[in-house]
Design a protein around this nucleic acid. Structure first.
Lengths: 133, 133
DNA sequence: TTCCTTGCAAATCGTTTGCATAATG
DNA sequence: CATTATGCAAACGATTTGCAAGGAA
């Protein structure tokens, strides 16, 4: 698979694989650019869109108006901090169960599931606790 | 609460309450306009944003690039049909459980949860079955 | 050669915003 | 009266796209 990719597509894909923070297209662009200054933002978008359509990566909309991309396509949840905006993974057991429950109750075919939690992450909670002193 | 709202806000809010199809801002706008032709799209957006911030409605991003709005703020899931684009509700028991599981495992405070399923709805499945004949 | 991809820049389009005016309580 | 909301139009910003040129098979 990787061999028939353009150099740019390979870099974008492997960059995503090294990250667990669900970068935006622009973050991908800025990072690739450090090694490959000629790459354009349009190319980054085109490849991210393509990879997501092929199911090799995930495209996430977490509510901040910007798309995030995730190299981990296994079933898992996300958490978005309303304070710092970070997007992190949450591993939960109940997901498979929820999925099959939904399959049973719903009249139609369910292919995919997306669960996102919102709140304030541990770091930001600590930070605001310090500021109270 | 309702009494101190402007006429426009009242109409937007009560329109959302009559709908279960999670309309977009533009759909809200087009509908309100039939009774109130002078309303502007900016006002619709301003009020939807305000109502969502106050927690009186939900703002949903289901992945089609457009925000959807939901008058039902109770805990429930959504389903998005990849074929017709419709957004419907799914009532599931396991949600509360999933939420508390997440609370336990996660280092931070979780305020809110959003679960969305993707696939093909019953109507579209039937339609494509007919076309196979 | 043939098809796919790129870089660039312009276009798109959903959403937000500044401002002067009007409505609300 | 003071405040808040409106309509309008312009601005914004993330994403997409048209096109001519470059790369891969």
């Amino acid at each position: 698979m990787a061999m028939k990719y353009s150099r740019q597509r390979q870099m974008i894909f492997s960059f995503l694989m090294t990250r667990k923070d669900h970068p935006t297209a622009d973050v991908v662009y800025q990072n690739i650019r450090q090694n490959y200054p000629n790459i354009s933002l349009g190319t980054v978008y085109r490849n991210l869109t393509l990879l997501a359509e092929r199911g090799e990566i995930l495209r996430l909309q977490v509510g901040d108006g910007v798309d995030h991309f995730d190299g981990d396509t296994s079933r898992h949840c996300h958490f978005v901090c309303s304070d710092c905006g970070s997007v992190t993974d949450i591993q939960l057991d109940g997901l498979e169960e929820l999925f099959s429950k939904a399959q049973q109750e719903f009249d139609g075919r369910i292919d995919r599931q997306s669960t996102c939690f919102y709140g304030v992450c541990g770091k930001c909670l600590d930070k605001s606790a310090e500021e109270q002193i």
